[in-house]
Structures are given as C-alpha cells and as structure tokens.
Design a protein around this nucleic acid. Structure first.
Lengths: 249, 249
DNA sequence: TAGTAGACTTGATCTTTATCAAGGTCAGGT
DNA sequence: ACCTGACCTTGATAAAGATCAAGTCTACTA
C-alpha cells in the first residue's frame, strides 16, 4: 500500500482519532485491491467479510430485487462503505461495483470488530460514521417520499453545485442513467424533467451544468438542509462548515 | 420511574451489556414523561437534547416538507429513537408524536455522549443499535424504490404476521392511513390495493387481517429477507432467531 | 343511546411516471 | 476515419398512483 494512500486513510474521520497501534494493527491485515471498471465488489446477501475504503475511482452501491435494480449511493474517494453490515456481521443489503478503474482498501471485518472493542476512540469514530450513514439514508428516503421527481432533480443539481464548492458551472460526476436510478426514476423521465428545468435557472450541455438563476432553481425544489444536507459539524466546534446556505423549512 | 420500567429499560439491547455504574449514571439524569395521544415530542430541525425510549404507548416518527408529510417509522415499547441525532449532536431529521397516551424516557444526549466514551461495552451497544437503524432505513428505501405499492402492502402484511409470531390472524397495530403514509402512498390507494389483494390470499375485516393462503400472498410480493427482514442474530451465536422463512432473492 | 368527528371506502378524473420504440449523439477502439 | 456499442433523447402510449368529491362506517363523547 502506498504511503500516500496510507496517510489519506489515516486522515479519514473514521480513522483519524484512533490509537496509532490500533491503526497499524488494522492495516496489518488490510489489503489493497485494484479493479477494472464494472467489477462487482460485493453482492447483496453475502456475509460481510471486509470493510471497504475507496482509495481511487468510484463505486456504486445498488440493490436488486426481482430483476429490478436501483442505485442507492455512489462512493468516491476517500469514502467507506458497508460499515453497518461489518460491525453486525450480517449479510450485505446492497451490492457494490466499480464505475471506473479503482483501488479499494479491504479491512477484515473481524479485525474491525476486535479493535473497536479495544480502542474507545475508534469506537467513537465508528459511532459517528454510522450515525452519518443513517442520516444520509434517512434523507434519501425523505427525498423519495416527499418530493416529485422534478423536485428531486433540482435538489440534486443544487447539491452537486454545493459539492463543487458552490460553483455555478460544474460537470455531472456520474452518468445520467445512474442519477436517474439514484433519484428513483427512469432515464427517460430524468431526461424530460431536466429539459423542463431549463427555463427554471439551469442550462445543460451534455454533462456540463450551468446554473443561470440559482434562486429560480432553489424555488423548483425548496432546498432544505433536513433533506439535502449537509450535516454541519456539531456546534461544539463553534463554527459550521462553509457551504451554500439552504433555507430551513 | 417504576422499577418495572427500569428493569425493562436495562434489558434493552442498547443498555443490557453496559456497566451498572454507567447505567445508573444515565438514569440519574433521565426522566419519564407521560404524554396524551397526539403530543409532539420532537420537531424536525430542533437540536437533539434527549435520547427517547418508548416505555409505553407508541410514537410516530414522521418527516415534513412543504406542507407534505410522511411517516418514517412507528416505535413501540420498548424501543428507542433519534439515537443518530443524539450521538452527533445535530438537528433531528424527523419529528415525533405520540399515537396514543404514552410514557417516554428521556436521556440527556450530553450524558449519553459522555458515558459512551467511558464505557466501551455501551459504545459497542450503540454501534449495534445504529447499525440496525441504518439497515432498517436502507430496507425502507429499497422497498420504496424496488416495489410497487401493491407489493409493498403484501410485504407489510407478511411482516406484521411475522411480528405477531407468524400467526395467520392478527390485527393491524396502526391506523391504515399511517400504514399508507409509511408505505409511501395515499390512503385511497392503500384501500384499493388491499381490496385487490383479497383474492390473493388475504381477508380483511376492519383492522383484522386473516391470511388464507400464505403462498399466494408471498407470491404477490416475493418476500426477501434483504428487504423485509428480519435481521437475524450474527452467526457467531450459532443459531438464527425463530421466525417465518423468507425466500432469499 | 344518539350525535359527531375522524377514519375508511368508493367512484370519477387527472397527473405523474413507466414502458415501448425509434432515432440521435458521443467516445473508444480498430 | 470509421465502426460499434453505449448512453441519451424524443415521441407515443399505457399504467400507476394522486386528487377531488361523496358517501359509509366506527368509535368516542355527551
């Protein structure tokens, strides 16, 4: 494993505060895997053997049922996934595959469980990470249940803009059909709704997005931190993270 | 607080394995609240001050946005809610209100955070509880995205039957309009779909449900443990919990 | 026990979204 | 530079679900 990656991993919220001895022990049995695009990393229903950390590339988390399929999340560097299944030693609820050539760090879940019992700081980090994952999934469900597809798309565009540092011009990071699946609609529906949003403050050329009238776009989805995020840091830090202001409900 | 309730609380997965000293400390600052039906306990967007434990009655977790509203979960004794917001000291993503006269135990979230840093066993329990909450919400989202409303209803009925010990006759625990909201549809739609399920192995009289042909009903939703649960105990226990078998995908 | 409010059902209609079927566009490989 | 396969768009149609508007039932209250 490259020292660079090791340092980046160490700096993740999940690993930042743990004891060095614990971190080293974890990394001892960890391994890095290099995968081509489209490779299935985990399959829903299988038992969780490794915590996965995306070091490079990107990974889609998706769920399947009766031949239908839906994107649940896209994980980008440096992010972790399937922590919940690992700590409970239960079957994955989602499958994962690479969207592009990627490198993934695999940490045996048995080691993970052993070490978080010994290192309280690590346990605290895991609690934080799990709580964040829960809140992210709760937002996803709220988005699906409370908004129309057009509203979800507008919200998605604003969120992507925020992730791009609040820029008015940015490029969609993932294919539109994946965006559609993530937002719970068909690609055709996404395509039409995107077109209808042109004229509500957005322009699209291929994957390039330009927000021409942020207020109009925000109006189309009534942005709300309790759905769109972000989770700012706890107030105890004294400040919240910089980021675009989202009106409270 | 009644000794009976204290014992029940102590026996929750969340509190069962923690040190007695820690438990006592937590309970020291905890208080029991008695509420009439329909009382709002927490409001989305507010900061998490207390972890809530439903000791008696039942509580609806719901989300609101732009005048729309959806039920996210119903918590019954003895269950906890909004743990994620408490441990991260962040605003609630959901509101909560009692569905009937209830008693709720309130545990200051600052104490919670302090004690789980000192008591590793408690931290382990919190991790388990959060992971379970995440998986439950992930299932909720999968259910919404992968199934039609008719399929979700069939799945709901089978799940309720399982919760009633696998009985073929049981009574719906919550109002149908709440079931509809939880399943992401209108009451009208639920009503019609329920009727269409009569003839697929179910009979309904008011809130009384009778499953006349379990196989037919299972066919209507293709039950799947990765959506419908339950999360069985980890294999390390050597056995899984008794319960109706759900076919794997 | 009668009245009443809320829940539930039913029907008619409309909107949203999915499905099916072609085209068109773009990028990567030969 | 062309071919090829994918993604994306567009149009026509169909299905699923929402909305609106009465009614009916039911359970609680007076």
């Amino acid at each position: 494993m490259h020292p660079q990656d090791l340092a980046e991993t160490r700096n993740l919220p999940l690993f930042r505060t743990m004891l060095s001895a614990s971190f080293d022990a974890l990394m001892q049995s960890a391994m890095t895997q290099r995968c081509p695009a489209g490779q299935e990393l985990i399959r829903q229903g299988a038992r969780a053997e490794y915590l996965h950390v995306v070091v490079e590339g990107s990974v889609e988390l998706y769920a399947e049922w009766q031949g239908r399929r839906t994107t649940m999340a896209v994980v980008q560097p440096v992010g972790t996934f399937i922590l919940a299944a690992c700590v409970k030693d239960l079957p994955y609820l989602m499958s994962a595959r690479t969207l592009e050539p990627s490198r993934v760090l695999l940490i045996p879940s048995s080691d993970l469980r052993a070490i978080f019992r010994r290192d309280p700081e690590f346990a605290v980090s895991i609690v934080g990470e799990l709580a964040a994952a829960f809140r992210s999934m709760a937002r996803h469900a709220k988005n699906l249940k409370l908004r129309t597809s057009r509203e979800r798309i507008a919200g998605y565009l604003l969120k992507q803009s925020a992730l791009a540092g609040g820029a008015d011009r940015f490029v969609l990071q993932i294919e539109k059909r994946l965006v559609a699946s993530y937002l719970g609609m068909t690609p055709e529906n996404l395509s039409r709704a995107l077109k209808s949003l042109e004229g509500s403050g957005v322009e699209l050329h291929g994957h390039a997005v330009t927000i021409t009238d942020r207020a109009r776009l925000a109006e189309a989805c009534e942005a709300d931190v309790l759905i769109d995020g972000p989770d700012s840091e706890p107030l105890s830090d004294g400040v919240s993270l910089p980021g675009p202001a989202l009106s409270e409900d």
